[in-house]
């Protein structure tokens, strides 16, 4: 085989034998159209069956293959060896605990997603015979961008505040929260406000802005978080003017 080869360095962590993660180099046959995901699967299939990674769709929609590639949060399926002529370094997503090799512990993230109540809480319940909840294209346009999230976790790996305070709800979940708040069919904003206002809420953000840079779906979580700050500030100063017992309070 005379084909060109490419170096792929992977941060390995096998809990049964490694105290700390260690770098391991592999040589894979190079081609112009080879994605990092293809290279990793080549390693797993042909060179080293012990390498662990998550992947599914190969087309940037399932959100499974997020990892640090050349130090940046990226989807392995839409990152290509050709852009790294010096060789490539692959590491599990930053700010998540490493379960094994490139697999991270997502439990905390999943928990945060649930906390934002990411479903429509109807303003007023309708019976079946009243028909569906209607929405105009203009109303949908308000939140459509934030609905593009694929829960890949890249924004968490881009957010130093998540790394410094793992309790921070984080960019992705707040973007999802914002998506439902902006939905004309939804009436749950007040219920979600307590989380936004809290010490694990939006004010952990210091407007680094990297979350929106790395998002593969151009969701702009930084905008959701910072609009959340304005809403929270309004809630902070005007809460005493609202009728008592309204939802969203957190004393």
């Amino acid at each position: 085989m005379s084909a060109a080869m490419a170096k792929v360095s992977v941060l390995r962590y096998r809990p049964e034998q490694d105290e700390v993660p260690v770098w391991q180099d592999y040589q894979v046959p190079y081609s112009d159209d080879m994605s990092v995901l293809t290279a990793l699967n080549y390693i797993k299939d042909e060179l080293d069956g012990t390498l662990s990674l998550r992947w599914s769709c190969r087309q940037a929609i399932c959100g499974s293959c997020g990892m640090m590639i050349g130090g940046k949060p990226s989807l392995a399926c839409k990152t290509f060896l050709r852009d790294y002529p010096e060789g490539i370094r692959v590491e599990a997503l930053a700010h998540f605990p490493i379960e094994r090799d490139l697999v991270v512990v997502m439990d905390g993230f999943m928990d945060k997603l649930q906390k934002v109540k990411p479903y429509i809480i109807p303003k007023e319940a309708r019976s079946l015979d009243e028909g569906e909840y209607l929405q105009t294209p203009a109303e949908m346009d308000l939140y459509a961008q934030f609905a593009g999230c694929i829960n890949c976790g890249l924004c968490y790996a881009a957010c130093p505040q998540v790394g410094l305070n793992p309790d921070f709800i984080g960019p992705g979940a707040i973007a999802l929260l914002h998506r439902y708040n902006l939905d004309s069919r939804d009436g749950g904003s007040a219920e979600r406000m307590a989380l936004i206002n809290s010490e694990v809420g939006v004010f952990n953000c210091t407007a680094v802005g990297y979350c929106s840079e790395v998002c593969p779906k151009m969701v702009d979580p930084a905008n959701a978080v910072n609009v959340g700050k304005m809403n929270s500030a309004r809630d902070y100063f005007f809460r005493f003017m609202r009728p008592a017992g309204e939802k969203g309070e957190c004393r």
């Binding site: 809990p15 993660p21 930053a94 605990p97 130093p160 790394g163 990297y210």
Partner: peptide, 15 residues
């Protein structure tokens, strides 16, 4: 299971 949490020290130099 023995999840490994990477340290944050010096994070601002990483990127």
């Amino acid at each position: 299971r023995k999840p490994y949490v990477r340290p944050m020290a010096g994070w601002w130099r990483r990127d």
